[in-house]
Design a protein around this nucleic acid. Structure first.
Lengths: 165, 165
DNA sequence: AACTGATATGTTATATTATAACAAATTAGT
DNA sequence: ACTAATTTGTTATAATATAACATATCAGTT
């Protein structure tokens, strides 16, 4: 059973993609005995509406449509939960959030952030992580959290604008 | 002439370190024909007061002591200039800023952020960068900016708390 | 030295992102 | 049903960052 969600592409079946992500989240939370409550699930679903990173206050605006009482804390608490469970990533360089495509693995990922379409691709980057580990050993540095974020232009945007400028 | 500033350590001569950084900045700005004005210089000096990442509003508070008229824009504009010139780095995961130890090279660096002493070490991490480049080629992704930030415990803090807990 | 265009700064206001603190409601386990 | 833990509601405010426009300063030219 593959629980790995494929990378975003203009042609992928995103309905299936999102559905799968939520199903995985349901199972993970059940296994761990933590509660994927209605609010938390709604926030996760909103995040999974696209592969673009979503801002907390955009989530809040959308939450308010279905839940009039939603406040910043409503969203931030849900985000904290989802981050704790590894179901989403925080994109540090954007102050925004994306669904995690590999919630089950212990994962340290590269995030490729397209400046044009704003989609974020998550990649395991095994070789990169090995090199990082080696570098950290040399530095005698004990890592707790790694954020590797590359901003640029993704392959689809490059292809669709071959003569840009 | 070595323009590379060594990594922070509890024992390094930081007065010399800061002085050198400012001298390099002076020279770089002169060479490029850009103005390291009083305000910009003051902000750079404040940032170089330590190897810890400094928050914009902490800089503002310190600026106000010597320049009563200082406002957020005062600081943010100076920061923008310093970032543009590569004289400082923004630490995305902290919303804070550190002096760049290698302003002259075209540089993509790893930032090692100690959660205990809050010092930030900048490392070239050549192997890591090679691996990243390879990964990006595979992904057909054209990079514009790379942020590689590792939070954890630095070697000095590890040494000074061998029996922590 | 005055002129001029570009650059830098002053100033006010506001947008954006995030957390603290405490009360009320809900849930899970007994 | 009882109780402790968890989750949510609510108000307030902290922390980070930018927009917009007026004024001042600087660099190069007359």
């Amino acid at each position: 059973m593959s629980a790995y969600i494929e990378s975003p592409s203009p042609t992928h079946n995103h309905d299936a993609c999102r559905t799968k992500a939520i199903q995985i989240a349901d199972r993970i939370c059940a296994e761990r005995g933590v509660q994927l409550t209605t609010i938390r699930r709604q926030v996760l679903e909103l995040i999974w509406n696209s592969h673009k990173a979503t801002k907390a206050y955009d989530l809040l605006d959308q939450m308010k449509l279905v839940q009039h009482s939603a406040k910043p804390a409503t969203v931030y608490r849900a985000l904290d939960f989802l981050l704790d469970q590894g179901l989403i990533h925080r994109v540090e360089s954007l102050n925004a959030f994306i669904g995690c495509t590999c919630s089950e693995q212990k994962h340290e990922q590269l995030l490729l952030i397209c400046l044009q379409c704003h989609e974020v691709e998550e990649r395991p980057g095994k070789r990169v992580m090995q090199a990082v580990s080696k570098e950290l050993s040399q530095a005698e540095f004990t890592p707790h959290h790694k954020a590797i974020e590359i901003q640029g232009i993704c392959k689809y945007c490059t292809q669709s604008e071959p003569n840009a400028m």
